[in-house]
Amino acid sequence: MWWDIIAVKPMINSLIALSSFLSGNLGLSIILLTIIINFALLPLVLKQIRASKAMQELQPKIAELQKKYSKDRQKLAQEQMKLYRESGMSPAGCAVPMLIQMPVWIALFQSIMRLVAIIPENFLSLSQYLYSWPVVYTALPLQNNFLWVNLAGGDIFLAILVGGTMWVQQKMVTPVTTDPQQEAQNRMMLWMMPLMFGFLTLTFPGGLSIYWITSNIFRIIVQYFISGWGTLFPKTVTKKATKEKKPKKLMAPAEQTSVEQTPVEKEAVTEVVAVSSAEGEKVTSEGTGDKRPYRGGYPAHLRDVRRHPRRGKGRHPKRG
């Protein structure tokens, strides 16, 4: 079967070969293989993190659109899609790495269930998945236990660890929002996935849970190095950022806009300034699809935020 050839067999033989260098410890070999897989998927993971970050930065503009077209949902959708298109991003882009990882999870699950000698029929079928490498034959059987974990069974502590690490990772990428409804949706998403995976952990082999935990920790580390703690510790980040970077050029227009904006809009703008500063990144107009180089002063996305209300609502006189 093609699935066995391209996914299950390589996974099984890799785990056995790695185990042979790790005293037959299947748990350690799962961790090592997870790290290797995550490094291989790193470009996709980075893309996802950047997409999430770009999504965060679009929040003020989206908030504006939402306010502007609050009574015309069709127009709102069109404008949002236009905004995403202009920014060169897709909301579904955030989920692609997860989709790509699904075959890895399934292959790993099938590999673990065959590798752990629990049910004779499964273990017997393992023989048909082995390459002719001598090490593969002498390394078997592998140890079913790793720390306190039975790699073939569910475990409540693993469920907590899977859910906990996933929550931390989700929290780091959850966008800041001032919309209560969106906030509620974000909160639901923040809890739904960790709870679902936590429940799955109780059902599926501990080896798969070790994969999830290692993957989550890997992504937390990557996420941290790219965009800091994000919304996991928002107050700390904002204060620190405000203290470290408070250029007058940046603040002056913001003060001007405060006259033009509602308090909610102003708050959103201030938050974005803080987050962008905290990340210490080079502020360009790349995220909005504007190819003009950054020449100091007001960041591109905030310039856009300022412009939109004027065009949309027409409450303010046009300049020049």
Binding site: I62, A63, R73, L76, Q80, Y84, P91, C94, Q182, Q185
Partner: peptide, 9 residues
């Protein structure tokens, strides 16, 4: 906004 968020959800 709500529409897109709900779509993403």
């Amino acid at each position: 906004m709500r529409f897109e968020r709900s779509k993403k959800d």
